[in-house]
Write a protein that binds this DNA or RNA. Structure first.
Length: 113
DNA sequence: AACCTGACGAAGA
DNA sequence: TTCTTCGCCAGGT
């Protein structure tokens, strides 16, 4: 049984356009749970393989890559750079430039109905 | 079954 | 401004 929240999160992530990124908190909020950023991380962790999600387009609210290991961070940075995302620090993304300005979460929701 | 953990984040101290 | 606490909740131990 997958919760509504989870479904929206997955749809949202799959909808992130190339060279754009979203933050955990932003996703959680859009999915209807402003405090659910943490769930977003485990959804990502557990569903990336199943749904083939662009996990690398999801970062934390500071615009940072927050993975555990260096090699993983480098992987993500590489993937983002390849798409044209700009960095303004070692693992610091230029949010003003790359944040996905999602305007219609409602559209995604409607598509699902 | 109880307890811990997590690729997070906002709010309080 | 940095540090701690608490909310969220599925999955693993």
């Amino acid at each position: 049984m997958v919760s509504e929240f989870t479904k929206i999160v997955i749809d949202l992530i799959q909808s992130i356009p190339k060279s754009k990124v979203l933050t955990y908190g932003r996703i959680a909020k859009l999915a209807g749970n402003p405090q659910g950023a943490r769930q977003v991380s485990w959804i990502l962790h557990s569903s990336t393989k199943k749904y083939n999600l662009p996990w690398h387009r999801v970062i934390n609210s500071k615009g940072n890559i927050s993975l555990k290991t260096e090699s993983e961070k480098q992987d993500q940075k590489f993937l983002l750079l390849k798409e044209g995302v700009k960095f303004c620090g070692e693992y610091q993304i230029d949010l003003a430039n790359s944040m996905w300005n999602i305007e219609s979460i409602d559209k995604i929701k409607e598509d699902k109905k």
